[in-house]
């Protein structure tokens, strides 16, 4: 029998109660509204648009981190991911850009 420790990683997903979407200013209060009414060039992922990360989301993430043993990186140097599909608009941040998040 191999003597091994079991390490379990959990990836936790949670819908955050923010007023606007993760990467643009569109309202998240979509109830009773028609389809495709809360969209803009950014969340449609149109060429040339640039996602802008929701400040509140970072605050929530930091709260989770404070309440747990998680550590955060001072400078979230996210690898250069780009907007690929409208529903999963991802953060465009070049690896070499070292300015702090706004």
């Amino acid at each position: 029998m191999i003597d091994a420790d079991v390490i379990v990683g959990l990836e936790v997903h949670c819908q955050l109660d923010t007023k606007s979407k993760l990467f643009c200013g569109c309202s998240t209060d979509y109830r009773n509204d028609g389809p495709n009414t809360h969209v803009c060039p950014v969340c449609l992922g149109l060429p040339g648009t640039m996602p802008m990360l929701n400040k509140r989301v970072i605050e929530y993430a930091m709260k989770v981190q404070k309440r747990s043993t998680a550590r955060s990186r001072r400078n979230p140097n996210l690898p250069g991911r780009t907007t690929s599909t409208p529903t999963s608009t991802r953060l465009t941040r070049s690896p070499s850009t070292t300015s702090p998040l706004p």
Binding site: P47, G48, T49, M50, G80, T82, T92, S94, P95, S96, T97, S99
Partner: peptide, 15 residues
């Protein structure tokens, strides 16, 4: 870099 907004420039090499 950063002095003129790139919003709307269709990205090739954004950094």
């Amino acid at each position: 870099y950063g002095r003129v907004s790139r919003y709307g420039l269709i990205a090739y090499a954004n950094s």
